[in-house]
Design a protein around this nucleic acid. Structure first.
Length: 285
DNA sequence: GGGCGGTCCCGTCAGGTTAC
DNA sequence: GTAACCTGACGGGACCGCCC
């Protein structure tokens, strides 16, 4: 396999992994609505399907308020009711909660309502859903940031006329944003290069933004105009690609931190389950 | 030192999405 | 309807570490 072939193979794998992560969250495996079924969630998280129903769990009241700890009423087999403060305190939106979820839900409703539709139409819709592009990283993260205080908001890119000089790739990168799980980005290799690198994207000095089409007469002028337009388009696309990659990095980093949080939550839930088991189990003296 | 694998970043293209 | 924007995919270069 050639080098490029390898790279594509790895890139494809990475993409698949990312999409699998997204899928696994979109299919409801994350505690988006813990308050709805905490007992079921506990079993799901621990993977112990054989555990008999030890106690009936209900959540008292606090599911609507963000930040307020949920008090869980645990009804023991003996009839005794125990107040347990849950580990999960707020229904937290998934990191990749996005309009796409809504789209799928709408599609589901539509399918239900219009059950007389032909399967072909439904299939084409489903295919469309599957193939449709995800919302942009900025959109996803900005929606997140509006829900979750800890999530940084991706800044709107400032246009050159109002922002930094165009020949400096000044990006509002939070400290440590490039630190991945492997820590490779923290090395002094790539980051400074990324920030300091003088862009090769600046338009040639002679390139004017646009000439009025009416003033173009000769084929040479038309060709020059076409060249200018192409260079302008390439330059914009270059910048857009950079910005897109930056957002993607931020998005991935956000996912990673989300995973870390969920792992901690999961661990606490397991501990809580063990505690409840101890409480509920008959004492063998 | 040179080859090789792994990783990262970049520019470009193509095609989908969005805004007007 | 279309220009502008966004992003996946591709090809390529650079860098680093390992092995011979």
């Amino acid at each position: 396999m050639s080098k490029c072939g390898r790279k594509k193979y790895m890139k494809t794998n990475l993409r698949q992994m990312t999409m699998e992560t997204i899928d696994s969250q979109q299919d409801g495996s994350l505690p988006d609505s813990v308050a709805e079924s905490e007992s079921a969630h506990m079993q799901m998280q621990t993977g112990q399907n054989s555990i008999p129903t030890l106690a009936q769990v209900s959540v008292a009241g606090s599911s609507t308020g963000r930040g307020s700890p949920a008090v869980t009423l645990v009804q023991l087999p003996s009839g005794q009711t125990v107040h347990v403060q849950g580990v999960i305190q707020t229904p937290q939106p998934s990191v990749i909660q996005s309009p796409q979820i809504q789209t799928v839900q709408v599609a589901t409703i539509a399918e239900t309502d219009e059950s007389a539709d032909s399967e072909g139409v439904i299939d084409s819709h489903k295919r469309r859903e599957i193939l449709s592009r995800r919302p942009s990283y900025r959109k996803i993260l900005n929606e997140l940031s509006s829900d979750v205080p800890g999530v940084p908001k991706i800044e709107e890119e400032k246009s050159e006329e109002e922002g930094s000089p165009p020949n400096i790739a000044a990006m509002a990168v939070p400290t440590g944003i490039y630190q991945t799980s492997t820590g490779q980005y923290t090395a002094t290799g790539d980051m400074p290069t990324y920030q300091i690198r003088a862009p090769t994207t600046a338009l040639p000095q002679g390139v004017v933004m646009a000439a009025s089409p009416g003033s173009l007469h000769s084929p040479q002028q038309l060709a020059e105009e076409a060249t200018r337009k192409r260079e302008l388009r390439l330059m914009k696309n270059r910048e857009a690609a950079k910005e897109c990659r930056r957002r993607k990095k931020e998005y991935v980093k956000c996912l990673e931190s989300r995973v870390a949080v969920l792992e901690v939550q999961n661990k606490k839930l397991i501990e809580e389950l063990e505690t409840l088991k101890d409480i509920c189990s008959p004492k063998t003296d």
